[in-house]
Structure formats: structure tokens, C-alpha cells
Amino acid sequence: MSEEALIGLFVATVQFGTLVFLAALGELIAERAGVLNLGVEGMMAMGAVSGFMVGLETGSPWAAFFAAAAVGALVGGFHALVSVVLGADQVVSGLALTIGGLGLAAYVGRNVVGERPETLFTDLGIAGLADIPWIGEIFFDQPPVVYLAVLLGFSVWFVLARTRLGLAIRAAGESAPTADTAGHSVMALRSGAVMVGGAFAGAAGSFLSLYMAPGWVEGMVAGRGWIAVALVIFGAWRPGRLALGALLFGFTLALQPRLQSFDIELLGVEVNRISPALLGILPFVLTVVVLVIISWRYRHRPSVAPAALGLPYRREER
């Protein structure tokens, strides 16, 4: 394996990691407020298609990025309306959001399949640092979304762990009646968290359609939204561990299409002779294996999931 290929692998690791990190960070916010949103896949698809279309229209990747975030927030708002305000089952509503979101994205984007926007996100060579061998290319010559994701990660950690708002959000997720008694509106906190989470997922979708795989085709999110949902569990609902997990999953996602070209032997099997379809199962199998391993390690400890996750809150039924 050449040095160039290896660097390429790590560059892609950071980018795939950013993709799932952004979406998972949004889901983390919603889940810390007590709302499970299984609609990430659908929100990402909607973000991908709307971001791509705005990018085509305006030629500005940033306009596209924020438009996708807005659409994601809107789609998330739907889940908030149904599951938080009306108190319907969160699992059902989220799944409907994924199925409906994928359908709507396919419908909205049916006429832009195969088109290419003129301007995409470009790599941001950070002066001085980008020239360092290896490290420079991997960490300091990436598209701006990567750095924005890092910034957002720190912000989310800070808000959740160090501010009153964060305390209120966590209270809504651990014990809604307590948050209510403390004078917070559980409905507003949860709806807000779900919408912000949706914005993150939508933005992640546009990173996919405007940088990683420029263009729009139906089914392009390809399960990454679901990996993001699993990542939140892996990250034990903490932004820091989420980032580590994102790099791990990013590595598998980046590795899978490259394994074909690697001239290496693994357990007596020449890797480049394995079918690409079979290599494609790697990220999904890894997700399951990782979830099983961490559950095995923590099997005797009480769950770290937010205590009120998935439970609708109605004041009358306290």
C-alpha cells in the first residue's frame, strides 16, 4: 500500500467521521432532551437534496449548507409536533419520518439527478499547518465543514455541561416533571432540541451532496443516518466519546471502498479479491459488533441513557 493511498484513507476517515458526527451530534441533543428521533436517515436525505438544489441555484455552498440545516430543522419540527406536542409514539413517528423523508427527497429531487453544481466546498489549506507532512494533509487541509463540526462539538458539550440551558435540557431528558416543576417548559425544550438536532442532520446531508459525493441520487444517504443513531449509543450520550466513535466509524466507511485497491493479505485472504458488495457490509457489521461489545462491558452497570428517553410527557399525567 502506497503512502499516498494511506494518507487518502485517513483524509477520508476525517470526512466520513465528520458526516456521521454532525448527524449524531444532532441526535445526541434530541436524546439528551428525552426525544428519540429515528428519522435521522430521512432528515439527512432531505438535507442532501435541498442543499444540493439550493447549491445548484445559488452557486454558494454556504447558502446550501444553511438551507439544508433549515430544511432539517423543519422536518425535525414535524417529529417534534407529532411526538412532543401531541405525545404520539416517538418510535413510530421517527420511522414515519425516515420513510416519508426518503420518499419526499426522491420526489423533490427527481429532476436534478445527475446534475452537478458549479461550486462545491473547497479544501481549506490552513496556512503553515497544511504543509506538515501527513498531519497537515489529514487535519489541516479539509473542507470548512470539518472545522465547523469540531466547533459545534465543543459548543454542544459546553452548552449541555456548563450552562443553565444545558441543565434544563438534561433535566427534560432525565425527569420531565422535575424540569417542569423547576419552571421550564418541557415542550419547548424538547421541541427546540429536536429541531436543532434536525438542523444538524440536514446540514450533514448537504455535506454529503455538496462535497463527499457531489450530486443527488435516491438512496445516497445509504444507512449513514442509522449509523449516526447507533453512534449516539456508542458515545454514551457524550459529545467527546461521540467524536471518538465518529472517527472509528468514519475509518470503516472510508476503508470499505478502498480495500479493493489494497494489495494486502488478511488471514490468508487477498483483500483485493473480496467482492466489493461483501466489503460493503463492513460498517454495518462493525456497528452491531461494537454495540454488543460495549453492552457486554457495561452489562453490570446501570444504563447511561437519559432516563426519560422515549417517554412522552404530559403534565396532566404526572
Binding site: 420513510i99 416519508g100 420518499g103 419526499l104 420526489y107 427527481r110 435516491e218
Partner: peptide
């Protein structure tokens, strides 16, 4: 895709 959207909408409508 309209059919997919209708299916999800039926579920949402019924849920609400």
C-alpha cells in the same frame, strides 16, 4: 415516490 410519501402521510395522519 408519491406512493411512499402517501404511505408515510397516512401513518402521520393516523398518528395525529
Amino acid at each position: 415516490a408519491i406512493a411512499d410519501i402517501l404511505q408515510a402521510m397516512i401513518l402521520f395522519g393516523a398518528l395525529v
